[in-house]
Simulated assay, not measured.
Amino acid sequence: MFKPAATLIKRCLALSGVAVLTLSLNACSPDQPTLPFKGSDITGSHLGKDLDMVDTAGQPRSLKDYKGKVVVGFFGFTQCPDICPTAMTQLAQAIDLLGPDASKTQVLMITVDPARDTPNVLKDYVQIFHDDFDGLTGSEAQLAKTAKSFKAFYARAPGAKPGQYTMDHSSSFYIIDPQGEARSLLRGDATPEELAHDIRLVLPNP
């Protein structure tokens, strides 16, 4: 389903296509108020509904397990050289900006490289950035199902040396409200302030 990209241009076009497709899903539900998100309003898209992975404790996880909290999802992998560490740092700063409301939010890094990112490896990685962050891994089939649910792109690409590989992947942030509904999609270069702003808009009522 997810084939290795042949060239950088092809990979970039694929990522752009995913963004366009996702943005085309903007369809506000009559049951949800329109909110002034900094990201794209994806209310009514139901992105992520079929999340089916394993957390860093080895426990199966779906969105229903996080009901009552705002979920911030990001696709990445632990051997990512620059994009993922930057994104995780942005997320950690955003969580710090939330102050007491940080406890009402769960950041999840969904690995696109489950072969190397075992639960223990993923746990050690995400907790470098914040003690309360968690990671999700699983089988290739689980990843394919979950990525499809989020309309997220990923593909294996050749590494610098024979036998090595890296991963190309979408770099957006998904914000899901406490009822498990996708609400905002922010670009990978969103600032901590923008992330915190959109999280606050969907925080559970006191």
Rank of each mutant, 00 (worst) to 15 (best):
M1Q: 12
M1I: 15
P4F: 01
P4S: 13
A5W: 15
R11L: 15
C12P: 00
L13D: 11
L15C: 08
G17N: 14
V18Q: 14
V18E: 13
V20T: 12
V20K: 12
L23Y: 14
N26E: 13
A27P: 00
C28Y: 08
S29Y: 06
P33D: 08
T34D: 13
L35V: 05
P36Y: 10
F37S: 06
D41N: 15
I42Y: 03
G44E: 07
H46V: 09
M53D: 01
G58M: 08
S62A: 12
K64F: 05
K69L: 08
G73F: 09
G76T: 08
G76C: 04
T78R: 05
P81L: 05
I83V: 15
C84M: 07
C84Q: 06
T89E: 09
Q90V: 13
L91P: 04
L98Q: 06
P100I: 00
D101C: 01
S103Y: 09
S103Q: 14
T105G: 03
V107L: 09
L108E: 04
V112P: 02
P114D: 02
A115D: 13
K123W: 04
Y125N: 04
V126M: 11
H130M: 07
D131V: 10
D132L: 08
D134Y: 10
Q142I: 06
K145N: 11
A147T: 05
F150T: 00
F153V: 02
Y154F: 12
R156W: 07
G159W: 00
M167R: 01
S170N: 08
S170T: 12
S171G: 15
F173G: 05
Y174D: 01
P178M: 06
Q179L: 10
A190D: 03
P192D: 00
P192V: 09
H197V: 03
D198C: 07
R200P: 05
L201P: 06
N205F: 10
